[in-house]
């Protein structure tokens, strides 16, 4: 079996002395779809943001495709040179809760931006690629529309296309539907599900437990200080073994019928 695309060993992060998580070990293999759940404040988003180094982890190490990211330094804490940050981020796509589309560019412009500016691809070729990605998320007809004219669900689908355009090895979704009107959640989950069916590797922070159960190959539950319980969706979400997980799931199921 091939090695993991991404390996986290002993990853830790704290803000001003408050530990967000520590000792996180996680191997992500090709085709894995890992949902990260946990109470708010358990560091789900921070963990995701550490993986593409929008936050710099202060302990442990990260390997991508077998290569260590960052350079060891005397303090024992890895250093991440600018060059490596940029390389890694191109291989790890990120979709944000609040979309963060570039409002001054059209939809196609948003998707093509990384290709032209970062990869140096000629504009015409980048646009073709952008249209392909927009077709994938069902928004080819909105190619020349500015983001302010799109619904929240459409914006998030553009953001997904923007991440896909860079051909990332892994996609990170940071609560991709939390900022959406309930009626628009479905279209975004639909796109994520379709990507899952294509065999994309992804890490998903979400509050949509039903969707997580449906789509994940593995579920990671974060507790106070790191990974609290992990296993298949069936194991963690249907038959949780540990009290915090059970309590969390009970809370989330309270109003289901």
């Amino acid at each position: 079996m091939a090695g993991p695309i991404l390996r986290l060993s002993g990853l830790g992060k704290s803000f001003d002395g408050n530990t967000v998580f520590s000792g996180v070990d996680l191997d992500v293999y090709p085709g894995d779809r890992i949902s990260i759940l946990g109470a708010s404040g358990s560091g789900k988003s921070t963990l995701l943001r550490c993986i593409n180094l929008l936050e710099i982890p202060d302990a442990g190490q990260m390997e991508i495709q077998g290569a260590t990211v960052g350079e060891p330094s005397r303090s024992g804490r890895a250093r991440y040179p600018e060059r490596q940050l940029r390389d890694l981020r191109q291989r790890v796509g990120m979709v944000f809760q609040h979309f963060n589309l570039f409002p001054h560019m059209t939809t196609a412009g948003n998707v093509a931006e990384g290709l032209t500016t970062v990869r140096g691809m000629p504009a015409g070729e980048a646009r073709q690629r952008a249209l392909t990605e927009l077709r994938r998320v069902g928004l080819e007809d909105k190619a020349d529309t500015y983001p302010s004219r799109l619904s929240g669900g459409q914006k998030q689908r553009v953001a997904i296309a923007r991440a896909l355009a860079m051909d990332p090895d892994i996609l990170l979704f940071d609560e991709p539907t939390s900022a959406l009107d309930p009626a628009l959640v479905g279209e975004v989950l639909g796109v994520i599900e379709q990507l899952a069916n294509e065999g994309r590797t992804m890490l998903l922070v979400t509050h949509e437990i039903g969707f997580a159960y449906h789509v994940s190959t593995r579920v990671v539950f974060l507790g106070e200080n790191g990974i609290y319980e992990t296993g298949t969706a069936e194991e963690v979400l249907k038959h949780p073994k540990r009290p915090l997980t059970q309590q969390f799931l009970a809370e989330h199921k309270r109003f289901q019928f």
Partner: peptide
């Protein structure tokens, strides 16, 4: 300009000066 704009630009691999030039300044100027 919102922090999210910087983050989105960095997340597709842009350098600080690319972010400034392509994403932040054009919006700031408007």
């Amino acid at each position: 300009i919102e922090k999210g704009q910087w983050e989105a630009a960095k997340a597709i691999g842009m350098s600080h000066s690319q972010c400034m030039r392509r994403i932040v300044l054009p919006q700031a100027v408007k």
